[in-house]
Write a protein that binds this DNA or RNA. Structure first.
Length: 828
RNA sequence: GCGGGAGUGGCGGAAUUGGCAGACGCACCAGACUUAGGAUCUGGCGGGUGACCGUGGGGGUUCAAGUCCCUUCUCCCGCACCA
């Protein structure tokens, strides 16, 4: 036995990586001869080091990329850097390193780590969002949005993070806290730039239906976030001050149950309503108190509903009844009209509020089933029913009533149908340095002026004080701020805020299709050839943020005829987290396993194999050091068995006649082809890499059993088997398979081979094992020819000695025969 | 509260269409080889050790249920006063 050469991953991994990357073998160009396939992993923030989550993300993507390549697709598989953002600036403040230097050094290190994992990226397409050649086009995108009326500036109450010293978009506030640093978000009134994502709310919602390849979970989250509702808007008159209070409701069928009207404390009408009244000062005090409440306290469901009577009255246009006007903390100023009609009998919140302040509850919907007795109800009834005490609408089904009432509103010019969304416009200004400057100039004569295309990019200045506090550091750089107006040439000032980094990441997948274009963001032919991304892979944490923004961008760019796809990501795989000891890996928990260390000890192939084998991709993966050992052991086992059979492989992989093989050889060949079928199905149909790998392990186990037979095997068969095995494993463990391919087969690279096809004939068997059950319990097993009919199966089963013994003296009620599977004899 | 997902050996996980529950791997046990083994190879490995029990619990449909139906418990994730 010649096993003197041991599996030593480091030598062979380095060797093949040099071979691949020096020769650019993963470079892709447009090619209409082959079907295209775009596989993409979410590009990382260059924090400095890869973590296990990255390794998992990229390993999954690499299997898909290599598999599709072997299947004959022209595969685009790029990588780049989401390189603007806070940590670089924090490092600058803390350690005095310039954000650019810090970022580029991190990129260099992480790129090296990625190469050491053997990932098949086309490095010629690498992009970094902080590079002027990239952010030039990010700025160009901003101007495109501006021209189309989708970027605007307004003063608004916005989310402010005191730790990050910047504003945040709604999507970036999680439970009232900053998505990045977890500190509590406060409200500030500031003039800021917004993207009008609300213009696209309906399409963003509707087109979720197109996304058949997305997890339902993500689609539901986006649906909820967009939050569409249908209802009516109409006004309550306030005759005393000659004003109107518009309200929005989805329950216009309950308007006759209104017993009060409530405004949000921020509502601008409040001051007019209370002016000169004895309630004025208490109401003002109350408003101050509510405003001081944190977002977290105020929006919590647990929070006590609090309110105060303004002293003013409004008139219900349906019955001309005067109802009191209140203000309350549970009414949100920035949803609907900032005012609601109070119907305690049919709304849970109103019920609580009315109970607390002893306001009238008037029932106007009678439930269909009599078991709800309106008189003795102790909670609001918000179900369906028949309208009552509702004037001309009484007796109507409430769903019909909704339509009739909104029609009545429109016919009488009092109100109208309204569709409302929870989605807010995207606040994109950031008071930070390390981002793409917003390309706008403020001129005393011309006003807000966009920087002309030929002046892009607006470059970030280098010498900046990063710890500027609550204004953008750029505002302190005189050379940056002072400029000439592009329109009139006069003295002007630049916008000093930078853009939310989510803008940079909203179009990077398009730039990959044409990454070095100096004249355009991308060429239409190229972007249309590659887009949409066929398979996108990343963490669930971007279910709303990045994935919603990217969908929005794609639609705007489509409307601008820059590309012809409606949705950017055809299929989405949300990978699970890598956890250890039951918790997400984190420095604070001290359960971090460094990829660099694992690759250093076992090699990249082992790291990849373990991470792909330990769990299916969508599920969380529990890290196990012993599991890694097991993966390493398997690769050693693979190495030895291939090296062993290598001696029998000789000559070329020519066609041969499988019918001349011995029974043992035929069995081996059958297992090979069954494995090919299983692995192909597992990868292509459902990304179940763990079961694909286990099938390959079984094949290897079988090869060991075959070896034990001590036969001198057919040379062509052994070549077929080893070549098949290595090709099946190549997407998972690219280095060891390349090395063994080189040693055993020796023609070209395993990664240039086509994916193995299975031979139907080889998989066929003459006989199968059939389970014989009596009353559903397994009693015996029997080998039967494949083609026999139910009658013959039954006879064979009944003829068995053991079966005879068990059924003797009993009556056979029924016999169920499932071909090639089971015979169940029912007796009594 | 609403929405989504999950619950299977000591552990990670299989079971794709209702048809042998526990593939594959880890851990563990035994044997072989060996001066030695934490290497490697071979075998065993749900519980009880009789023919019975077993996929969170209870009920149902079926010849047959991890899988379908009803009910219930637990955990995880998302949303959370949106009128």
């Amino acid at each position: 036995m010649n096993e003197e050469v041991k599996y030593s991953p480091h030598d062979i991994e380095r060797k093949w990586q040099n071979e691949w990357f020096d020769n650019n073998v993963f470079h892709t160009v447009m090619n209409r001869q082959r079907p295209e396939y775009y596989v993409l992993e979410m590009f990382p923030y260059p924090s400095g080091n890869l973590h296990m989550g990255h390794v998992r993300n990229y390993s999954i993507g690499d299997v898909v990329a290599r598999f599709k390549t072997m299947q004959g697709f022209n595969v685009l598989h790029p990588m780049g850097w989401d390189a603007f953002g806070m940590p670089a600036e924090n490092a600058a403040i803390k350690n005095g390193i310039h954000p650019a230097k810090w970022t580029w050094e991190n990129i260099k290190n992480m790129r090296r780590q990625q190469k050491e994992l053997g990932l098949s990226y086309d490095w010629e397409r690498e992009v970094a969002t902080c590079h002027p050649d990239y952010y030039k086009w990010t700025q160009w995108m901003f101007l495109l949005f501006f021209e189309r009326g989708l970027a605007y500036k307004k003063k608004a109450t916005v989310n402010w993070c005191n730790d990050c010293n910047t504003v945040l978009a709604n999507e970036q506030v999680i439970d009232g806290r900053c998505w990045r640093c977890d500190s509590e978000v406060v409200k500030k009134d500031l003039e800021q730039w917004f993207f009008k994502i609300t213009d696209y709310a309906e399409r963003l919602l509707q087109d979720l239906d197109e996304l058949k390849g997305w997890p339902d979970r993500v689609k539901i989250m986006q649906e909820n976030w967009i939050g569409r509702s249908e209802g009516a808007e109409f006004s309550f008159d306030v005759p005393d001050v000659n004003e109107k209070i518009p309200v929005y409701t989805t329950r216009q069928d309950t308007v006759f149950g209104v017993t009060y009207v409530v405004l949000a404390p921020e509502h601008p009408l409040v001051e007019k309503l209370i002016a000169g009244k004895s309630t004025a000062q208490p109401v003002r005090d109350f408003i101050e108190r509510v405003k001081k409440q944190s977002e977290i306290n105020r929006t919590s469901n647990e929070a006590e509903k609090e309110g105060m009577f303004t002293g003013a009255y409004a008139v219900n246009p349906f019955n001309n009844e005067r109802v009191p006007i209140w203000i309350a903390n549970y009414v949100l100023y920035d949803y609907g009209t900032g005012a609601v009609m109070g119907v305690p009998a049919h709304d849970e919140r109103d019920w609580q509020f009315a109970t607390k302040y002893q306001l009238e509850k008037r029932f106007v919907i009678k439930p269909h089933d009599a078991k709800h007795d309106i008189q003795s109800m102790n909670e609001a009834y918000d179900g369906p029913g028949i309208m009552m005490n509702s004037g001309e609408f009484s007796g109507m089904d409430n769903e019909k009533g909704k339509q009739e009432i909104v029609q009545w509103l429109e016919d009488n010019g009092i109100g109208k149908r309204r569709i409302n969304y929870r989605l807010r416009d995207w606040l994109i200004s950031r008071q930070r340095y390390w981002g793409a400057p917003i390309p706008i100039v403020y001129c005393p004569n011309c006003g807000t002026v966009p920087v002309p295309d030929q002046d892009l990019p607006v470059m970030l200045p280098e010498n900046v004080d990063f710890a500027a506090g609550s204004v953008s550091p750029l505002a302190q750089v005189e050379e940056f701020v002072n400029c000439t107006c592009p329109k009139c040439g006069g003295q002007a000032r630049r916008e000093t805020d930078t853009m939310d980094t989510f803008i940079c990441s909203s179009w990077y997948y398009m730039r990959y299709t044409d990454p070095r274009n100096a004249d355009k963001a991308f060429d239409s032919n190229k972007v249309n050839y590659w887009m949409p991304v066929d398979q996108y892979i990343g963490g669930i944490e971007h279910a709303i943020l990045h994935l919603l923004y990217s969908r929005f961008f794609t639609k705007v760019l489509k409307d601008a005829n820059l590309l012809n796809v409606n949705e950017p990501f055809k299929n989405l795989l949300t990978q699970g987290m890598v956890i250890k000891d039951g918790a997400k890996m984190s420095k604070s928990k001290g359960n971090v396993v460094s990829p660099e260390e694992i690759v250093g000890r076992y090699g990249a192939d082992t790291a990849r194999l373990f991470i792909l084998f330990a769990a299916p991709p969508e599920r969380d993966l529990e890290w196990s050091d012993q599991g890694v050992e097991g993966s390493f052991r398997f690769l050693g086992r693979l190495w030895r068995i291939v090296t062993h059979f290598n001696q029998y492989i000789d000559g070329h992989l020519n066609d041969y006649d499988p019918t001349v093989l011995s029974k043992e050889e035929k069995d081996l060949r059958r297992i090979l082809h069954a494995t090919i079928k299983k692995v192909t199905d597992d990868i292509s149909q459902r990304f179940n890499f763990n079961t694909a790998i286990s099938a390959i392990m079984e094949l290897v186990n079988y090869l060991y059993a075959f070896k034990e037979l001590n036969l001198v095997p057919n040379s062509a068969l052994m070549k077929e088997v080893i070549a098949g095995l290595l090709r099946l494993l190549a997407p998972f463990v690219p280095h060891i398979t390349e090395e063994l391919w080189n040693q055993a087969i020796g023609q070209g690279s395993v990664h240039n081979q086509s994916w193995p096809a299975y031979d139907q004939e080889a998989i066929k068997v003459d006989e199968v094992e059939v389970v014989v059950q009596i009353n559903g319990k397994v009693r015996e097993k029997i080998i039967l020819p494949v083609g026999i009919d139910a009658k013959e199966m039954e006879q064979a089963a009944l003829g068995l000695e053991k079966v005879q013994a068990l059924i003797s003296g009993k009556q056979i009620v029924r016999v169920i025969c499932v071909p090639q599977k089971i015979v169940n004899i029912v007796v009594k």
